[in-house]
């Protein structure tokens, strides 16, 4: 399952965003941010304490099941009073959740997290970016490993000169995508795919902002 990967904003940044607000309601999410331990129940509890230590009033808090889905009437009704008496919502979800909640509650929102990428858990607690939604899938020619996403420079014709022991020049913890692709294609005896020239890419397949209409709807 793909996950929205987040990290907390620095306290200084968050404090500055909260300037002018005294009464706050805190929202976490039971899905991705619970897995990444950035917006689950323990983090929401810790946020309440932090806000109190900053001299704020916390009118209430909740951990919604899936913040990027429309919230149920039950949830909205359960917290109606506490939300109404808050000046703003401190939201510990990814940016999808922040946008949904902002629309549904009709309140000013303060994101407590920054959304980094859409990723997949590759080992316990380790999440890797898997797709940048480029609109021009190249996976059929790279053995199912995406260089647009997994190569730091998004190169599609092979590696740069920055490979060091199969790792990326910018971080020894990051694999060189083209080393992985080479090994995968070699194991399938398909290196001719890597030798194939890839022309310059189409960067506007779906011009921003993305919009899609399913057929017949």
């Amino acid at each position: 399952m793909i996950r929205s990967i987040t990290q907390p904003k620095l306290d200084t940044a968050l404090e500055s965003l909260l300037e002018g607000y005294t009464r706050l309601f805190v929202v976490g999410c039971g899905t991705c941010v619970t897995l990444t331990q950035t917006g689950g129940a323990p983090q929401v509890a810790a946020m309440r304490e932090r806000l109190l230590s900053w001299g704020k009033m916390v009118t209430g808090s909740t951990v919604v099941p899936v913040a990027c889905d429309e919230l149920s009437h039950e949830i909205l009704e359960e917290h109606q009073g506490a939300v109404a008496s808050a000046e703003a919502l401190v939201i510990m979800t990814c940016a999808f959740g922040v946008q949904t909640i902002a629309g549904q509650f009709g309140k000013m929102v303060v994101p407590a997290l920054d959304t980094l990428f859409i990723g997949k858990e590759s080992a316990a607690g380790t999440f890797l970016e898997v797709c940048v939604q480029c609109g021009q899938c190249i996976l059929g020619e790279t053995g199912g490993i995406c260089p647009v996403t997994s190569c730091h420079k998004g190169l599609v014709n092979g590696p740069c000169g920055g490979t060091k022991a199969g790792k990326c020049e910018i971080d020894p913890n990051k694999d060189c995508a083209w080393t992985l692709i080479y090994n995968r294609l070699k194991s399938f005896d398909k290196l001719d795919l890597m030798r194939r020239y890839q022309p310059p890419r189409h960067h506007n397949v779906e011009p921003k902002p993305g919009r899609f209409q399913a057929p017949g709807t």
Partner: peptide
Amino acid sequence: VTPEADPIEPQLIKFEK
């Protein structure tokens, strides 16, 4: 080209391209 790239094989394919 980087003759001391590690691994070298992917680098050589890029060189040829």
